[in-house]
Design a protein around this nucleic acid. Structure first.
Length: 266
DNA sequence: ATGACCTCCCGTGGAGGA
C-alpha cells in the first residue's frame, strides 16, 4: 500500500502537475495540502476521472486539505482538529482507507516570529499533541501525514544557521515536533534514512532547487502497528523540477501487508 | 539586511507563503 503526501500549492493552478504525478506514481492514498480553493472549486471531476475518490475541506484563497483514495471513496471521519471551535482554518481532515486512519494535516507556517501567527502555530501544535495522544490510545493503525512546517533537526535544513529565528525552525517548534514523536510515533522517512539529507521543499527563490537548498517539512508519523509494516519511504524529488510545479515535492511511504522483520535496530 | 518567486483574489497590487 502506497500512501503519499503532497503540498500542491493551489490544487487548480497545479491540476495538470497533480494529474501527471498521480498517473506516474499511482499512489493508493494521497493527502493533499494547500488546496487554496473553496469547497465548491475543488476539482473533483478531474480527480474522479483519474480514478480517485476524494474527501476535502476547502477554504477560499488559503489552506485546504484533501484525502484521495484510488478506486474507492475514503470514509470521512473528521474535518478540523478538535480543541478550538473558533479555528476557521482548513488544516485537518481524516478518513479511513483499507483499515488505516489517515490524518491529513497542514500545520500553520507561524512566521513572522515572534507574533500572533507564531502563537497560533504553537497552539495548533498543542491541539495536535492532545488529539494524537487520543489516537494512539485507540491502538488502531494511524498515519498522520502532511506539511508540518517544521524542520525537525539540523540535518533537515540546507543551512541551519540561517533559520534559527524562523518559525519553521525555532527551538519551541522543533521541541513540539520532538515531543509529538515521543508519544510513540515513528517518523517514517527518518526511520528508513537515518543520517541522510532529505528535503521535501525548495523555495522558488534563488534557484533553490538547482542548488539543492531545501528543507524537510513534509512528514509521515506512523502509529506502532503501521510502523512495523513500513517498507519504503521516499521523496519524488524530480516532480519539483517540472514546469509550473509546487514548491513542495510529493512524499510517499510503502506499507507491506504484514510486519517487516529485517529492519535494523537503531 | 533585503529580496528574489508563486499563488490567490474581482485583483490591476496586496497578502500569504517558507
Amino acid at each position: 500500500m502506497k500512501i503519499a503526501s503532497y503540498n500542491v500549492n493551489g490544487v487548480n493552478g497545479r491540476l495538470d502537475v497533480l494529474l501527471r504525478w498521480l498517473k506516474e506514481a499511482e499512489p493508493d492514498v494521497v493527502c493533499l495540502q494547500e488546496l487554496k480553493a473553496p469547497d465548491a472549486k475543488f476539482p473533483v471531476k478531474a480527480i474522479e476521472a483519474a480514478g480517485y475518490g476524494a474527501v476535502w475541506q476547502g477554504q477560499k484563497s488559503w489552506n485546504g486539505v484533501a484525502i484521495l483514495a484510488r478506486d474507492q471513496e475514503p470514509l470521512l471521519t473528521r474535518k478540523g482538529l478538535p480543541g478550538d471551535p473558533d479555528d476557521s482554518h482548513s488544516r485537518y481532515i481524516e478518513a479511513v482507507v483499507d483499515g488505516i486512519v489517515l490524518g491529513g494535516l497542514y500545520l500553520p507556517n507561524g512566521n513572522p516570529y515572534p507574533g500572533t501567527k507564531f502563537d497560533y502555530k504553537l497552539a495548533w501544535f498543542r491541539r495536535l499533541h492532545e488529539y494524537a495522544a487520543e489516537l494512539l490510545k485507540l491502538e488502531v493503525p494511524v498515519v498522520l501525514a502532511g506539511d508540518y512546517n517544521v524542520m525537525p533537526t539540523e540535518l533537515d535544513v540546507y543551512k541551519p544557521e540561517r533559520w534559527t529565528n524562523d518559525a519553521l525552525f525555532r527551538v519551541e517548534v522543533r521541541e513540539a515536533y520532538r515531543e509529538l514523536v515521543s508519544q510513540g510515533w515513528t517518523d517514517a522517512l527518518r526511520e528508513l534514512h537515518p543520517g541522510e539529507r532529505i528535503y521535501t521543499f525548495w523555495d522558488y527563490f534563488r534557484n533553490a532547487y538547482g542548488r539543492d537548498a531545501g528543507l524537510r517539512l513534509d512528514h509521515f508519523l506512523l502509529s506502532p502497528s503501521v510502523a512495523e509494516r513500513l517498507s519504503k519511504a521516499e521523496v519524488d524529488k524530480h516532480v519539483r523540477g517540472w514546469e509550473h510545479t509546487s514548491d513542495h515535492a510529493p512524499v510517499w511511504i510503502e506499507l507491506a501487508d504484514g510486519p517487516v522483520k529485517q529492519r535494523k535496530k537503531r
